[in-house]
Amino acid sequence: MSSEVAVSKTGTRLRSPRHMLADSATLGPFLTLLVLFVLFSLFIPKFLSWRSVSGIVNAATPIGIVTIGVTLLMICGEFDLSVGSLVALGGYVFAMLLLAGAPPALAALLAVALPALFGLLNGLLLVWTGIPSFIVTLGTRSIYRGIVWLFSGGTLIQMLERPAVLALFNGRLDVLNELLPKGANFRTSLIWFLLAVLVFQYLLTRTTFGNHIFAAGGNAQAAAAQGVNVSRVKVISFAFSGALAGLTGILLFSQFRTVRVTTGAGMELSAIAAAVVGGTALNGGVGSIWGALIGVLLISMLRTGVILMDIPFIPADNFEAVVGATIVGAAVLNTWLGQGRAKR
C-alpha cells in the first residue's frame, strides 16, 4: 500500500491527517466550525455571549430541518429545488387550518403530509421520466409555489392570537433559558431540529434503508445488482424531504405568526449550500446528518460574525457573498479530500 499508510500491531491503521479527514465527511467541517468559533470569540467583541450564540442557533434551526432532507437526497444522488416552495405550502396549510378552527394536531399533520405527498410526486416524476431531479424540481419549485398562490389567493396570513400550539412548535425554550445566564434566548425549534437530526442520523446509518441510500448515490448499478430497489429508495427520500420542508413551514409560522407566498423562497439553495459546507458530496454517495447540522451552524455563525464585525465593504445585506465564498471553499476542500480517497 502507499507509503503514507502504516499498519500498527493491532491491525488498525495509522493514517495521515488528510486521510482521517477524507474518511470522515464530517470531521473537516466540525474542525472549521470550532476554529471559526474560537477566532470570532477572540476578535469580535460581543460575539461570545449567550445572546449571540442562541441567536445563531435559532436562525439555523428552520433551515437546518430543510437541510436534513436535502442532504438525504444529495447522498442518494438527487437534488430537490422545490423545498422552499414546500415550506410555504406547509406554512399555509398549517395557518389556514388553525384559522378555520381545525384541531392543532390535525393542522400540523396535514401541513407535513401534503408537502410529503408533493415530495413523493417529485420522486415519481424523476423515476417515471428519467429526467434529472435538478430539472424536475426546478419545474415543480415554480409549480408548487403556483399552487400555494392559487389556494391562498396570494394573500398574506397573519395571526394575531397566540394559541398554545405555536409555543410548542417554536416558542421560547424557557426551561433551558432559565438555567443559563442572562441573554440566552433559545427556542423550541431547537428541540424539533435535534429530534430530526437524531431520527435521520439513525435512519441513514443504522437501517437497511440508509444503507441503500448511500448505495443508490454511490453506485446505482452496483446497488441494483445487489437487489436494491434504487427507484423506491429515491422516491421515499423525496417524500421525507417534502415532509421536513412542511415541518419547517410550521416552525416559521409558529415563530412569526405570518406566512406569505414568498415564504421559504431561496431556502432550497441555502440548504444545498449548508449541506455542501457540511461535507456532503455534490455527486452523491457521501454525506451525513451531523454534517448538515454543522453546515447550518457554520453559515449562521458566519452571518452573525460578519454582521458584528461591521466591515464597511461587507454590509449585513451583502452577506450572500460570504456564503458564496464559503461554499466554493468547502467544495474545493471536499474535492481535494475526495482525491485523497481515490488515490490510496
Binding site: N211, A215, G218, A223
Partner: peptide
C-alpha cells in the same frame, strides 16, 4: 460495477442482505 466505492467493505459485502437486530420495536443494523 460490482461495488460502491464510497461505502465500507462490510456495507458492500452485506448490501441488500443486511443483518438487522431489533432493540424492542426498533430495527438496528
Amino acid at each position: 460495477l460490482a461495488l460502491v466505492d464510497t461505502m465500507s467493505i462490510t456495507r458492500n459485502f452485506f448490501l441488500g442482505r443486511e443483518i438487522v437486530r431489533r432493540l424492542g420495536p426498533i430495527p438496528w443494523l
